[in-house]
Nucleic acid binder design. Structure first.
Length: 239
DNA sequence: CAGACGGCGTAAG
DNA sequence: TCTTACGCCGTCT
């Protein structure tokens, strides 16, 4: 009985609620920005989108079928909460897409990282634009926090639900958008501490602890490097 | 299979 | 400083 398919189809509580094990199902629930449609397989949440106007959600289901290749049935059962702990099922994604989503999921709440940072973290430093493409199609927004990925200059950049939504989500997580915007305006991309010789991304937990007297702004990773700084091991700014 | 298409980055003007 | 042009690269058609 080691066959994984049989194992999935023959759990101890067969008969109670078989449907979700055989087909993917969806329901509506409340997310941080309002009502969302949440689809899931037996493995986890597969797809999240804001509710559409259509009562049957035919558009959502058609899109699901096109992208996931499986039909989707309504389910009134309990819906998993939409947060960072929600188990997701990304089997429909390519390895590159999974890597991008995994790295994105590692960005702490209230912090931001550039698209280029994600590209570097997945080992494809030149695939910056492809990272954007992946995140634009993120199957599980709000769970995998693609709203925490910004442009290299710290400006928010685009978001599948609109840039305003991106700002709202970040603000709700405690990001100091005014502070980040000030750095962007000043062309500051990295913050160093002249006591440690370490440079951080502006939203890094450690960058926030540098006192005014010791804060050294940098306009590029190269500038920080030339000044003899090394990159923070936590936010890995690529210095 | 070739070509188009992007939630980007950055040099150049 | 602010635009614009162009390179980059994984997907989709």
């Amino acid at each position: 009985m080691s066959d994984p398919l049989l194992a999935r189809l023959d759990p101890p509580d067969v008969g109670k609620d078989l449907t979700p094990r055989v087909v993917d199902t969806f329901a509506t629930t409340r997310g941080p920005l309002g009502e969302v449609l949440v689809a899931r397989s037996a493995e986890g949440v597969t797809y999240v989108r804001p509710v559409d106007d259509d009562a049957d959600h035919t558009g959502f289901r058609a899109e699901y079928r096109r992208r996931l290749g499986r039909p989707l049935l309504p389910d009134d059962g309990p819906v998993p909460a939409i947060d960072a702990r929600t188990r997701v099922d990304l089997r429909a994604c390519s390895p590159f897409e999974r890597d991008v989503l995994d790295v994105t999921a590692s960005i702490p709440a209230g912090q931001t990282r550039p698209y280029g940072w994600v590209a570097r973290e997945v080992g494809r430093p030149a695939a910056v634009r492809a990272v954007g493409t992946v995140l634009a199609r993120n199957p599980v927004p709000l769970i995998v926090p693609c709203h925490r990925v910004t442009k290299a200059d710290g400006s928010l950049g685009r978001y599948m639900l609109g840039e305003a939504a991106k700002a709202r989500l970040l603000a709700a997580e405690g990001a100091d958008l005014g502070r980040l915007a000030a750095f962007t305006t000043a062309g500051v991309v990295l913050i160093g501490s002249d006591t440690t010789g370490i440079a951080c991304l502006p939203s890094c937990h450690h960058a926030r602890r540098i006192t005014d007297a010791h804060r050294v702004p940098f306009r590029s990773a190269a500038a920080a490097r030339e000044a003899g700084y090394r990159g923070c091991r936590v936010c890995r700014p690529g210095v």
